[in-house]
Write a protein that binds this DNA or RNA. Structure first.
Length: 194
DNA sequence: GCCAACGTTGGC
DNA sequence: GCCAACGTTGGC
């Protein structure tokens, strides 16, 4: 999976194995961390495209169930995020280049859905802000199956989820959402589940 | 656990 | 730069 990693945060931490240990061998130096990012006047096409003051919306996948990969448990659920010091995590371990570009394009305070993948009940479980910090649990779980139902319907009707990356860019672990997609998904919280 | 989808790698 | 082999993601 998409390994959004995790590992802890910032300041305080006693990390166990740690950060510097790193399992990503090939990655050169450019570790991507949403926490830090920012900044610079660097221009990548993604940062241009998503830049400036517009607010951007994201969906970030993480696996809530234990699974050992190269000797490391990749589990990181929204409850794990909530349990971090200051409820902030460092989102490392993302290898796919487009996903990494998205991490670099994020701006502090952008809003992101926390998505549980590769598990019994995949779907959106909560909200974060880029930092990457826990904001809240969704008022109700928005399952992949429900999103897919809307996606299918919207393909026919031209509704907001017709191009949602979760379905059109299936394996991307960090994806961007349009404002319409984000707002529509948030509005689902107020509806009864199907 | 299976396997489809799709990204990455590397030979040519 | 094509494309087959391989590896990863992630639903089911």
């Amino acid at each position: 999976m998409p390994r959004p990693g995790k590992r802890l945060a910032g300041a305080a931490g006693p990390d166990k194995k740690g950060l510097s240990g790193k399992r990503t061998k090939t990655e050169n130096s450019d570790e991507t961390s949403a926490q830090v990012e920012n900044s610079s006047p660097q221009t990548t096409s993604d940062s241009k495209k998503y830049g400036k003051n517009l607010s951007n919306y994201w969906l970030m996948k993480s696996e809530p169930e234990s699974r050992i990969e190269k000797g490391v448990d990749v589990k990181f659920s929204i409850e794990d995020l909530k349990a971090q010091p200051e409820q902030i995590a460092c989102w490392d371990g993302v290898r796919n280049y487009q996903a990494r570009n998205f991490l670099r394009a994020m701006k502090l305070e952008d809003e992101a859905f926390f998505y549980h993948s590769n598990c019994k009940e995949p779907g959106i479980v909560g909200l974060m802000k880029v930092d990457v910090q826990f904001v809240r649990i969704m008022k109700r779980f928005i399952s992949l199956a429900e999103l897919k139902t809307y996606h299918q319907a919207h393909k026919a009707t031209g509704g907001p989820l017709k191009n949602m990356a979760l379905f059109t860019r299936q394996r991307l672990s960090v994806q961007s959402l349009t404002q319409e997609e984000f707002d529509f998904i948030l509005s689902l919280e107020e509806k009864e589940p199907d």
